[in-house]
Amino acid sequence: MKEQNQQSTINNQQSKPYLFDNPKNVKILLRCFYCSLLVLLIIEFFLHKHPHFAWEGWPEFYAIYGFVACVVLVVVAKYILRPLVKRREDYYD
């Protein structure tokens, strides 16, 4: 009986909806994220920059660099590094 109770508690817990179980919430989060990106892109034009390097003054330099850097990072890691270094888990055993 006690075990059954425990089981039902676990089931209840599992069926309890959590924040991101609802796809709507994920969508809202993503939309907020995209909006903040837009704000960041626009806000830059209202700033007075004092760059060390010339390219720091280019419009949206940091945004483009951040995006490109991460794409390069992932592509290189996935398509170049992983095929080179990936081994089975028991490789050294």
Partner: peptide, 19 residues
């Protein structure tokens, strides 16, 4: 302001790349 915005842009757009 430029440092805060620049750094936030860098991070948010790398987050965009991840997404």
């Amino acid at each position: 302001a430029p440092h805060v915005v620049g750094q936030t842009q860098l991070l948010f757009f790398s987050a965009l790349a991840f997404t």
